[in-house]
Design a protein around this nucleic acid. Structure first.
Lengths: 206, 206
DNA sequence: ATCAATAATTATACGCGTTACAATTAATGT
DNA sequence: ACATTAATTGTAACGCGTATAATTATTGAT
């Protein structure tokens, strides 16, 4: 029985190499020139291929952007990890983490836009945010901090921890989102609102 | 001294008539077919002019959408006003208002998208949200409810009222935003989070 | 009536993300 | 060398929002 003729398909290593190349170029474009610079035509030029070739490797633009989300989130959380090292107790750790989280997005609105606002408009039914395991673990990290901070005053049950974590994350994202998109409203300072959220969530018992 | 030659400019009545015509067609498109239907080409076809003509009347698409924001916000707040009529006290009134607000956007993600996510992507430096006076008054309405609810337990100062109002609005918008854009995460139920936010904000003293 | 001046409208084109289909190139087996 | 298969590219197009140039409509002066 003769072997199958023709060109051999690329192996997984080769496939990953090309995908990584595309992703790295997209990342570089984003870091050097911002969100708007990542057009498929521009990206193809940087990679050194035709725009259509990219569609042989990714279903669409959003699937490339998802990889950039992961990089940005990694940056945020590594900054959080760095900053909480000097915190003395669980409440202070949670406060530092929350303030660092909010501050990062406020200082990098383009990053916020990439991570939280690109999928919403372009492809609502896209492969999603949390297919990325690392992203989910970032969320869970906050859950751990909340539990420890609550445990300083009482023994929280898992429903309370989850509700307060989800509420906190939603509030943090909401504070940043409003500051970024409704920028002409004279909002109370974001750090004060973050502080208020933390204070009220931690002092009230479920 | 000879009169100025050439075609006379349209008067304010004529100007407003054309703008209103465009806006009304945009509104009808949105109501009948949703956010995606409002393209400039489609809109021009409905109005009966060339797409570029619209740019003689509005700086950009976002300036048309702003008028639709006002309509949507009016809808939300009239629903809130209707629902709070049966509430017996300020705390219940605030609760009803907040739940109605969140519920509306959760049930109408396209409306949320129009009002809160169109400006962020297309024109960050656009004429803004709060040039519309009615929008500002909607925000202030919440402020009044918060003050009355807080006053049931203590005499709040204006800084506390503002911080808690801003925090509440940000949190509400954040809850809806997260539910809409990170839909695959198993969030605590939005109504429970809204309730948690209200409970904690109202029970903790500034 | 004709021409000039001015305002309003439209035509053409750009880059955007993406799709469809055809053509070309690259890599393999016979 | 040829045939086969995979990968890539070319070409064209779509609708998107919008920029610039061209055309049309309306007025005043002669």
């Amino acid at each position: 029985m003769p072997k199958k003729m023709g060109r051999k398909p690329r192996n997984q290593t080769q496939i990953n190499a090309v995908r990584d190349k595309i992703i790295n170029h997209a990342l570089k474009l984003f870091q050097d020139e911002g969100y708007e610079a990542i057009s498929m035509r521009r990206l193809a030029k940087e990679v050194g291929c035709a725009p259509m070739t990219i569609y042989a490797h990714f279903d669409g633009k959003i699937n490339i952007l998802q990889h950039l989300w992961a990089v940005v989130l990694e940056t945020v959380f590594s900054q959080i990890h760095t900053n909480i090292k000097t915190s003395k107790n669980p409440t202070e750790r949670l406060n530092t983490a929350a303030q660092t989280f909010a501050q990062y997005w406020l200082e990098n609105p383009d990053h916020f836009r990439l991570v939280f606002m690109s999928a919403g408009i372009t492809r609502p039914d896209v492969d999603s945010f949390l297919k990325n395991k690392a992203t989910l673990s970032h969320f869970k990290f906050f859950s751990g901090l909340v539990m420890l901070a609550l445990a300083e005053t009482h023994t929280p049950n898992s429903a309370e921890v989850k509700a307060k974590t989800d509420g906190l994350i939603s509030a943090l994202i909401g504070i940043v989102f409003c500051a970024n998109t409704i920028a002409d409203y004279p909002w109370t300072k974001p750090e004060d609102m973050v502080n208020l959220m933390l204070t009220t969530l931690l002092t009230s018992k479920a």
